[in-house]
Design a protein around this nucleic acid. Structure first.
Lengths: 331, 331
DNA sequence: TTTTCCACCGAAAACATTTGCGGAAATGTT
DNA sequence: AACATTTCCGCAAATGTTTTCGGTGGAAAA
């Protein structure tokens, strides 16, 4: 019976108007206590539930945020999404989660779906080759807040929630120098991404400014397996590195697979340092030392900013989450 | 300008009726080619996008599936969700993803949100203490398909998509026996869950039916850290086990942390076997042998079944995904 | 000439809700 | 008794779309 209780059905039963029923249910002062009671009782009995579709149509809001990430199966994005979901829920919002699969076309498609679904705001970590620049601008201008996180678009028109890329990379470089490493292999992600550029620049500049004698070898890769191959060939080469730096968890995983398949021991033969979300480094023996960049914390910051935008639109902001060093035993 | 193009605005501009515009846009045969062309041109110009809210209201459908999992930050559920999202997208559906946090109250809340949002169907992996039994039944009866996966409700009223729990556990037990292990520590999850019961029963019964001399020690835990503690105290005890069996990735992680912090070597001092989604075992040295239970495959099966339900409601089905042994080097 | 048929199109109801405005009755004020 | 103020409620419009039912005008068939 409760299947499709509507205001209308209640109003017919009680011989009231739809508007009176509507107001009674939301405690409008115009309605007498007596009427309110009757309406609420019947509504409960009929298991009335307001029709979200109708409310959305009327209010032109959905209380849904879109989240577009390269992949859901990824520790970093998981913890980000997890944080966003928690806070969103507390504030009455839900999440529409889409994967771009690092494919700019699918990213554009997901973006369109968000627009089409008329979400109230978008969180996005862009693909390396994103070609949706104008889309972002259009959505933003049409009043739908776009918040970039992690991998962001180079523009100051948008809110951007980033990890402290320079800081983390600088910290990493200093740590490596402190341990007196000479032959460093530093592996970074896709060179087109701003996150890669920032980390690489900061990392290199520490060495250029300081000890000029040490010049780290720089490599780029697009996924875990490419990282594995890079390390595998490096440690079997003539001048074996005495340290490996990994820009991300994904790269760390590949690097450790290569090391695990060799007979080198960490940290005696070769030391390792990563920038990481925190979970992966704890799985190895010894645990890998890392510079923490928490997806969870980033998520909290992102949703906070989004909720601010819901209140009132302010000038775009660039927020940076500081990082910290976590000692493992790999140095 | 394109902000809020509607059928009405287009119809006014072209001096047509709303219905004609609507039909023209969907190639209704009643409309002349000429009119169609004009309408489509203007629609493109005005960047018309059909209002999803209105469509939902009219059709009483949302093309959204609800997904309720204990946690998003979990490799197994990730890969499940990832698979579901892929197929859902291909079929024009989106996902509303909620976390229950293993809390029955939050689970019930999430369930209500799904109902409230009027999703077209629900995927759910229940918490150990779920108290939403009647809710499930009510939703099911009100025509909203509920598909249980992984951790399922013990009832034959619903579709259930499960891993081959018995098969996997049996396979594990046989493998362990084959390697002639004598002092086995087997760690399982929450004892209230049907997934735990099934795996434990099957595991034990192999030993009871076969070699009666070997009786594995059984332990239960609720999370990774409890597993770690169990293993830590077991290996420091008087009769150190020569094998550890882990029912899940979560447990494996805890167990390996304990082993990594000891000076025992795998598999010489102690061997390890797990039931796993496949990612975690590959991170260790040596890689851990495991019985694969793919969240991704499970997701594919689940969404397939859901789409069947969208076509036409059939009798509840119980689908089981077979498992396979993957050799690592930990045995 | 009348009937039939077709191609093309419009009016209006329906979906469920919210809200400004106004109205009637009851009560209070001179 | 005349007027003013509350109190309580209904009307109707508005949100955007889909769809049923019908209608117009012209050409072909009777």
């Amino acid at each position: 019976m409760g299947q499709n209780a509507t205001l209308k059905k209640i109003s017919v039963q009680l011989d009231l108007s739809i508007s009176t029923v509507s107001r009674a249910l939301k405690n409008h002062p115009d309605i007498s206590e007596n009427t309110k009671r009757k309406v609420k009782e019947l509504a409960a009995l009929m298991e009335y539930e307001p029709n979200t579709y109708a409310i959305n149509l009327r209010t032109n809001k959905s209380n849904v945020f879109g989240v577009i990430v390269p992949a859901i199966s990824n520790m970093f994005y998981d913890s980000f999404i997890s944080a966003v979901e928690e806070e969103a829920r507390k504030n009455g919002y839900s999440l529409l989660i889409l994967q771009s699969g690092d494919d700019p076309l699918q990213e554009a498609e997901s973006l369109k779906l968000c627009k089409h679904s008329r979400v109230d705001g978008i969180f996005i970590s862009v693909t390396p080759d994103t070609c949706s620049g104008e889309l972002f601008i259009k959505y933003q201008q049409s009043g739908m807040p776009v918040i970039f996180f992690d991998k962001v678009q180079d523009s100051d028109m948008f809110d951007k929630i980033c990890l402290a890329d320079e800081e983390a990379a600088t910290m990493a470089a200093h740590t490596i120098i402190k341990y007196n490493k000479k032959n460093i292999l530093a592996i970074f992600g896709n060179p087109e991404l701003s996150i890669t550029k920032k980390r690489k620049e900061a990392f290199i500049s520490v060495f250029e400014k300081g000890n000029k004698k040490v010049k780290p070898g720089i490599k780029f890769c697009n996924n875990s397996d490419e990282a594995r191959q890079i390390v595998a060939s490096a440690i079997s080469g003539s001048s074996r590195p005495d340290h490996i730096f990994c820009m991300s968890d994904e790269i760390l995983i590949g690097a450790m697979k290569a090391l695990n398949h060799s007979d080198l021991s960490v940290p005696d033969d070769i030391s390792v340092l990563a920038i990481s979300n925190g979970f992966i480094p704890g799985l190895f023996k010894p645990e890998i030392s890392y510079i923490e960049t928490s997806g969870y914390e980033l998520g909290k910051l992102a949703i906070k900013r989004m909720l601010e935008n819901m209140e009132s639109k302010t000038a775009p902001k660039s927020i940076i989450l500081p990082s910290r060093f976590v000692e493992g035993g790999s140095l």
